[in-house]
C-alpha cells in the first residue's frame, strides 16, 4: 500500500487567455490513481474534465497556462520538456478519444499506423516482429480477422471497430496508464457495451490504471472504482463509486442522479437542475453551483468551499453534513410540481 501511486495530481490548474486576462478552465484538481484501478471523472460539457487531462499531458495549445503538480510514477509531468513527455505518451501512457476517425491518418492502413506506433518507441524491433505484434494487438481487442483488418484503411472500419483499433494502438507499447476521454460516447449502446467490456477486461489483465472521462453516470457506475464529479473546473465530490452513488452529499451530484431517467423513473417526474452551468468567463462568486442549488445559503454565495471528508465521500459543500444526514430539504424545490 505504500508504493507510489501511478498518477498523483495536486492542485492542477489550466487557464486560457480570454478577452480580459486569463480565465481558469480547471481550478485546482486533485486525485490519485493506483495501478490497476479505474478512476471515473464525471461532469457535463464545460466542466473542465477533458481540459484537465489534456493539461497534464501538455496537449493544450501553447498559450494555455498550466500549473500544479502531476506525478506519473513519481515523475513530474507539468513543466516536463515536450520531447520527454512525447516519449512517455504512447509508451507509458495510452490515450483513447471520443472520435476514433480523426485520431487515425486516413491515408495509411490501420496496421501501418499501429506498426509505426510500436516502432516509434522501440527502434530496434524489426518490421516483421512489429507486424506480428500488431496482429496480436488487434486480436486482443476482439477484432475478427486481424491479418486482413490490418491491411484496411480507417474508413473501412465501423465506428465500434475503429474504437477497438484505437484501443489497440493505445495499448501498443504496454502502457501502465490509459486515459479514455468519452471513449463510447459516439457509439451505440450495444457497441458501447462491447467496448466497456473490452476496457474492463484489458485493465484487469494488464494491470493498467485508467482514467475514464465521461458524462454518463451509467458508464462510470459500471466501470469505475473511484469517482470524481467535476463542476465548473473543480472536483465537487469524490470517493469510491459506492459512496458517491449511495452516500451522495453534494447537491450537484444529487441533482445529476435525480435528473437521469432510469428504467424505474416511469410515472414520476424527473428533477432537472435549474439554470445552466456558468461560463468560465463569468463565474459567480462563492460556490459556482450556488445559483442553481436548492440548498444554497447566503454564505454559499460568498465562500467557495474546499473538499471535506463527509462520511465516506469528500464533498465541496458548506451544507454537506446536513444534506448527508437528510436533515435539510432543498429550500427552492426545483420543478417538483409542474410549472405553468
Amino acid at each position: 500500500m505504500t508504493a507510489a501511486p501511478l498518477l498523483e495530481i495536486r492542485d492542477l490548474r489550466a487557464a486560457f487567455r480570454g478577452p480580459s486576462g486569463f480565465v481558469e478552465a480547471v481550478r485546482g484538481v486533485d486525485f490519485t490513481l493506483n495501478a490497476g484501478e479505474v478512476l471515473g471523472i464525471v461532469g457535463e460539457s464545460g466542466s473542465g474534465k477533458s481540459v484537465a487531462m489534456m493539461a497534464l499531458l501538455q496537449l493544450l495549445p501553447a498559450q494555455a497556462r498550466v500549473s500544479g503538480s502531476a506525478k506519473f510514477k513519481g515523475r513530474e509531468l507539468i513543466g516536463m520538456p515536450q520531447r520527454q513527455i512525447r516519449h512517455i505518451l504512447g509508451r507509458e501512457i495510452g490515450c483513447i478519444f471520443q472520435d476514433p476517425l480523426s485520431a487515425f491518418n486516413p491515408v495509411l492502413t490501420i496496421g501501418a499506423q499501429i506498426i509505426e506506433a510500436i516502432r516509434l518507441h522501440d527502434r530496434k524491433i524489426s518490421k516483421r516482429a512489429a507486424l506480428a505484434q500488431t496482429i496480436d494487438l488487434l486480436a486482443s481487442v476482439s477484432i475478427p480477422e486481424p491479418e486482413r483488418r490490418a491491411q484496411q484503411y480507417p474508413h473501412e472500419f465501423s465506428g465500434g471497430m475503429r474504437q477497438r483499433a484505437m484501443i489497440a494502438m493505445a495499448l501498443a507499447n504496454n502502457p501502465s496508464l490509459l486515459i479514455a476521454d468519452e471513449p463510447t460516447t459516439a457509439l451505440d449502446v450495444t457497441v458501447q457495451a462491447q467496448i466497456l467490456d473490452l476496457l474492463r477486461r484489458l485493465a484487469q489483465e494488464r494491470d493498467i490504471g485508467m482514467v475514464l472521462i465521461t458524462h454518463d453516470l451509467g458508464v462510470v457506475a459500471s466501470m469505475a472504482r473511484d469517482i470524481s464529479v467535476m463542476y465548473s473546473g473543480r472536483v465537487v465530490e469524490t470517493g469510491s463509486a459506492d459512496s458517491v452513488f449511495y452516500d451522495t452529499c453534494h447537491p450537484y451530484t444529487r441533482g445529476l442522479i435525480a435528473a437521469m431517467p432510469s428504467l424505474e423513473s416511469v410515472g414520476t417526474l424527473l428533477t432537472p437542475i435549474d439554470g445552466t452551468p456558468p461560463s468560465i468567463f463569468d463565474r459567480p462568486q462563492g460556490c459556482s453551483f450556488a445559483p442553481r442549488c436548492g440548498y444554497a445559503l447566503p454564505a454559499c454565495h460568498e465562500t467557495d468551499p474546499e473538499l471535506r471528508q463527509i462520511g465516506t465521500t469528500r464533498a465541496a459543500c458548506l451544507r454537506a453534513e446536513e444534506i448527508a444526514a437528510g436533515t435539510v430539504r432543498p429550500t427552492a424545490p426545483l420543478s417538483e410540481s409542474l410549472p405553468v
Binding site: P144, S158, G160, M161, D188, V189, T190, V191, Q192, A193, Q194, L196, D197, D216, L217, G218, V219, A221, S222, A241, D242, F245, Y246, I257, M260, S262, L263
Partner: peptide, 26 residues
C-alpha cells in the same frame, strides 16, 4: 440485448448484472 447494454447509474446493480453482449456490428 439493448436493455442489458444500458449502463445503470447504480454500481451495486452493475456488479451483479449478467449481460448479453452482442457480437459484431450492425
Amino acid at each position: 440485448a439493448l436493455l442489458s447494454a444500458i449502463p445503470l447509474a447504480d454500481p451495486r446493480a452493475e456488479r451483479k448484472r449478467a449481460r448479453t453482449v452482442l457480437e459484431g456490428d450492425l
